[in-house]
């Protein structure tokens, strides 16, 4: 059981305005999510998410104004089935906007919505990204 669309081979060219917060995840692969205020790049470890197997997410999160932002929480749910994970991720800050969320597990194939709660200063926001597991 593997990630349907193999990891999007997004080349994470770092925009000029994000100098202090590189979005490079080290392998040239990953997903990018952004909003009006935030830019975020993440990839899974291991790179391929298997149904029923624990995995971690490496996350870099920045503000559009090129500062490092904070990752508060990572969670996931299956919107069609109205259930979440049976596991709770914990987050370790690696400095300079880099984080590792450990202990995620998708126990079912289908569409999972991953939510990232990010914050810079007093302003927090929820970013989401969908992954389809087959």
């Amino acid at each position: 059981m593997r990630l349907a669309a193999a990891l999007l081979g997004v080349l994470l060219a770092t925009p000029a305005w994000a100098d202090d917060c590189p979005l490079d995840l080290g392998r040239g692969t990953g997903w990018v999510v952004f909003s009006d205020h935030y830019l975020m790049a993440f990839r899974s470890d291991p790179l391929r998410i298997e149904v029923g197997e624990p995995f971690a997410l490496l996350v870099n999160v920045c503000t559009r104004r090129s500062g490092a932002a904070e990752l508060l929480a990572v969670d996931a749910n299956m919107p069609e089935h109205r259930h979440g994970m049976n596991y709770r991720a914990t987050i370790v800050a690696k400095g300079n906007g880099r984080f590792r969320a450990e202990g995620l597990l998708f126990h079912m194939p289908g569409r999972w919505e991953i939510t990232f709660d990010v914050r810079a200063g007093s302003e927090s926001e929820r970013l989401t990204h969908d992954i389809i597991l087959k």
Binding site: P54, G84, M85, N86, Y87, R88, A89, T90, E102, G103, L104, L105
Partner: peptide, 10 residues
């Protein structure tokens, strides 16, 4: 022990 460490009771 990752599952044990991260499993949540709901």
């Amino acid at each position: 022990a990752r599952r044990t460490r991260h499993v949540q009771r709901q």
